[in-house]
Design a protein around this nucleic acid. Structure first.
Length: 887
DNA sequence: GCTCTGCGCAGAGGA
């Protein structure tokens, strides 16, 4: 049986005499999740005492295969030979992180901070792995090499290599792979192979992707050289991790691992020095697996504490370490204890404190991501049915092979469940359960009535789960590191309040009919450090931004154009296009970039020199902030970074773009949606907001809006912009529904005739929906349609996705969406469904900025639909109703 | 108790 629950007490390990000699043991009290609520005692024997040493109160602990015994009338538990002890099992540790930690815990920490830079061996290694996978899927070697090298063209070009030289290099590794494959292929049927298998273990708290699995045993491919007789220790650790991932218990894990060192050439093999053949098999014993688990536990415990490793935890020798210099520099800058020592001067205390504060904030966010992994397996199917992170009960239709040995799987929906999964997403596709059945990482191709995904293996498609990714937090950590540890000291002086931002150069007229916009462009062009452009709804923020980019380009500057979302980046590129400027390289994935912007998208595949030149020569590069942290963009340099929707970015997220440029311009509105974060911490406030509060003189507010009528904009202007937001012209102010061609406003029912109105439909909230209210919303929309308003001119907004689905079902041809997804667009008529009836208990109503976004999407008419009592219970919403009432 | 996008996912290797 297994025991699991939070640790109540971990007693110090001690030595005892047993019938079999001297042994170590540690007693732990934990509160079991199931059954008895009282704490129970479990004794950890032998080397598990090392794990016991890591335990703290409230840590989640899992002990498998325990033995039960009675002691003085009390039931106690003890580890057996088959037991595994797992600290914080929900914290899924990556296999490569365990590998790094075994080398040295500081290697693990530094990898997290800095990421892996663009280097030839890494790029070639990736290509060889892809070719290996292709060979296993039965592909022709030369075809594979040609295509895989072409796919890596940009990286190869940036490194100054040619396709031919890389292909030659890859061929050498591939020869070793082919030779080895041919040995085994005679007695091996193709079905006993799996390549690139993504594995998740809820039991051991590990995740990773195995290069290959052959007859249930892990095969790990290495493209570097291994000149010793035995496999490298950390490589064995890596293979052992995959062995654990393939098992349900330590006892039935595969007992053999294969390491394929493909750089060990025929020449090496003929040398008298011994066996340097590429394939090295080694046995994986229970003791080794438990060692690997204890290493994994050390990481989980360190993450629980957010401890910074010193290097003394390992007996690795620093002088042989590739990270030695980085290690010493980081230790020196942050005044950390490090086995390698410190080098250089430490940063000012304010900067070290800032780093520490944001490091912790990002790591808290990482924990929240890990909580989402747990959802993959913790709930029963019935509970998952309510959960929008999965699509369940799909009915498998068929499967067909596609190019490259991959498969297209099709299925049909059997319910109308709402899910957050979208086309293009990477998901875990499974035949029933994402960690217990057959599961593969797959790409969603179609998500209509019929569901189509592509995956590496064929199986019956019955379920899709969101696959949580840590890349967002990883990138933010890199952004933080680069800004604080590698950042320009001159810039940091301003960021940390040691001097004021400066502006220089002559003023010019860029926009002659809007003073604030003109002032904003001037500020951006004249900024020596940064400029802040505050753009409330409808004020021409994106137009001003595009004008700014053009002015900078005219001055010969190289510009990085960035924003948090792909949608905002595309909008900015579109605004440039509207101003006749199209010399832009759009960096992004095919799926992320809007169809009509694909023409600007940089292809990564092709000829290395051409691809590299395309990026390096681009005057304007447009990319999301997360993409700015990618290996290729990270080594680009710009004069100015112009960041749109900056109010939606965390501070480290903003740095990802700002780090690449000498100066930066932030454009946004901190009175609209804040950054999307799960944890409650410093990440919630944007750098834009903090800087505008600290240096109001570095900011320009665009105060004239071109969107809303006077009546519509009034409440937002008063509540959020100190009454300073005004209609740009009398025409904007006085616009009416009847201005629209074919619209007869008199045909509307009386309660909808005022440009801002409120309707209480009755009904009751049922979870996050209110069906009666949804009916009424549909009726209201119908009234506008009947009065002659076009469908495309109407938008419906609801706070919850569930209500959005309810309303969409009633209005299939009208745009219905959540507030969050409506930001950045507008409609002539907006209907808002507030859903809540008893009170505004949901936190979604607490952030009034979300309401500001919803209210300011409307140009001519706005209808608020909700429960009057609930809305009047909060002063802010009460004022909103008064505004809607008083015409 | 809620909204949510981003990222070639994780791992490629150096001696």
């Amino acid at each position: 049986m297994n025991l699991r629950g939070p640790v109540v007490e971990a007693r110090d390990p001690r030595t005892v005499e047993t019938s079999r000699g001297t042994s170590e043991l540690a007693e732990v009290l934990l509160r079991p999740e199931r059954g008895a609520r009282e704490p129970v005692q479990v004794t950890l024997w032998g080397k598990w005492t090392g794990t016991a040493d890591l335990l703290e109160e409230e840590m989640d602990l899992l002990v498998t295969d325990v033995e039960e015994r009675e002691f003085r009338g009390e039931t106690q538990y003890t580890t057996t030979g088959d037991s595994a002890v797992v600290v914080e099992p929900d914290f899924l540790v990556d296999v490569t992180d365990i590998r790094g930690w075994v080398q040295c815990p500081r290697v693990y920490y530094l990898n997290k901070l800095t990421g892996v830079p663009l280097k030839y061996p890494v790029v070639k290694g990736t290509v060889v792995h892809e070719v290996f996978g292709d060979l296993l899927r039965g592909r022709d070697l030369e075809d594979s090499i040609e295509e895989r090298v072409a796919e890596a063209a940009l990286d190869i070009g940036l490194l100054g290599e040619t396709a031919d030289s890389v292909a030659d290099d890859v061929r050498q590794n591939a020869a070793a792979i082919e030779g080895w494959l041919q040995q085994g292929i005679l007695d091996d049927d193709a079905d006993s192979w799996r390549s690139e298998q993504t594995l998740i273990s809820e039991r051991f708290g590990i995740k990773g992707r195995a290069d290959a699995v052959r007859r249930g045993m892990p095969v790990e491919l290495k493209t570097g050289k291994n000149t010793t007789r035995d496999p490298r220790f950390q490589d064995k650790v890596q293979a052992a991790c995959y062995a654990l991932l393939l098992a349900d218990s330590v006892a039935d894990a595969p007992d053999t691992g294969t390491l394929l060192y493909t750089k060990n050439t025929a020449l090496d093999r003929s040398e008298a020095s011994g066996d340097l053949s590429p394939a090295k098999e080694f046995s994986i014993g229970g003791g080794f697996l438990k060692f690997v688990l204890r290493q994994r536990n050390e990481i989980a415990a360190a993450e629980f504490d957010m401890a910074v490793p010193t290097g003394y935890e390992a007996d690795a020798k620093c002088e042989y370490c590739f990270e030695q210099d980085t290690c010493m520099v980081v230790a020196g800058r942050l005044d950390q204890e490090s086995k390698a020592g410190q080098i250089g001067e430490s940063l000012p205390k304010a900067e070290r404190d800032y780093f520490e504060r944001f490091y912790r904030a990002i790591e808290e966010e990482r924990r929240e991501v890990h909580r989402e992994y747990r959802k993959l397996w913790e709930q029963s199917a019935e509970e998952r049915a309510d959960d929008d992170r999965a699509l369940l009960d799909l009915e498998p239709l068929d499967r067909e092979p596609v190019s490259g040995g991959r498969w297209r799987l099709r299925a049909r929906r059997t319910s109308e469940a709402v899910s957050k999964i979208r086309e293009g997403d990477r998901v875990l596709a499974s035949d029933g359960h994402p960690t217990r059945g057959t599961a593969e990482l797959a790409t969603v191709e179609e998500l209509g009535e019929e569901i189509v995904v592509t995956a590496d293996e064929p199986f019956d498609l019955r379920r899709l789960d969101v696959y949580p990714s840590e890349i967002g937090v990883d990138r933010q950590l890199n952004g933080l590191h680069d800004a604080i540890l590698r950042g320009d000291p001159d810039r940091k002086d301003v960021l940390f309040g040691r001097r004021d931002p400066e502006f220089s150069g002559p003023r010019e007229t860029y926009i002659d009919n809007n003073d604030a916009q003109d002032e904003a462009v001037n500020a951006a062009v004249r900024a020596d450090d940064f400029a802040l452009v505050h753009g409330p709804p409808g004020t021409g923020k994106t137009y001003t931004l595009a004008r700014t980019v053009r002015a900078l380009v005219d001055d010969g500057e190289r510009v990085l154009l960035s924003a948090f979302t792909n949608r905002a980046v595309d909008n900015a590129v579109e605004a440039l296009e509207e101003q006749g400027f199209t010399d832009v390289v759009r960096w992004g994935s095919e799926n992320g970039v809007r169809d009509d912007m694909q023409q600007y998208r940089m292809q990564r595949s092709g000829d290395p020199r051409e691809r590299a030149a395309e990026l390096q020569d681009a005057q304007v590069v447009a990319a999301t902030t997360a993409a700015c942290g990618s290996r290729a963009l990270k080594q680009q340099q710009f004069d100015v970074a112009v960041v749109d929707e900056a109010g939606q970015l965390t501070e480290p997220g903003t740095f990802l773009a700002a780090n690449l440029a000498h100066r930066f311009v932030l454009v946004g509105d901190h009175e609209q949606l804040p950054p999307v974060v799960r944890a409650e911490n410093d990440l919630k406030e944007s750098l834009f907001e903090r800087l505008i509060e600290t240096y109001p003189e570095a900011g320009v507010m665009l105060d004239r809006q071109y969107r809303m009528s006077q009546r519509v904009q009034y409440f937002s202007s008063r509540e959020f912009y100190g009454g300073e937001l005004r209609p740009a012209t009398g025409e904007v102010a006085a616009q009416r529904l009847s201005d629209l061609p074919g619209v007869n406003a008199d045909a509307l029912p009386p309660e909808l005739r005022d440009p801002v109105s409120f309707v209480d439909p009755g009904g009751a909230a049922d979870g996050n929906t209110n069906p009666i209210e949804a009916d009424r919303v549909a009726g209201i929309v119908q009234s506008f349609l009947d009065a002659g308003v076009d469908r495309e001119d109407i938008g419906v907004i609801a706070p919850f996705r569930a209500q959005v689905a309810q309303i969409s079902r009633r209005l299939p041809d009208v745009t219905v969406d959540t507030v969050d997804r409506f930001q950045g667009s507008s409609k002539e008529v907006i209907v808002i469904s507030f859903v809540a009836t008893d009170d505004l208990g949901s936190p979604i109503f607490e952030d009034y900025r979300r309401v500001n976004v919803a209210l300011t999407r409307a140009k001519k008419a706005l209808v608020l639909v909700g429960d009057e009592g609930a809305l009047r219970s909060v002063p802010f919403y009460e004022r909103m109703l008064e505004w809607a009432d008083g015409s």
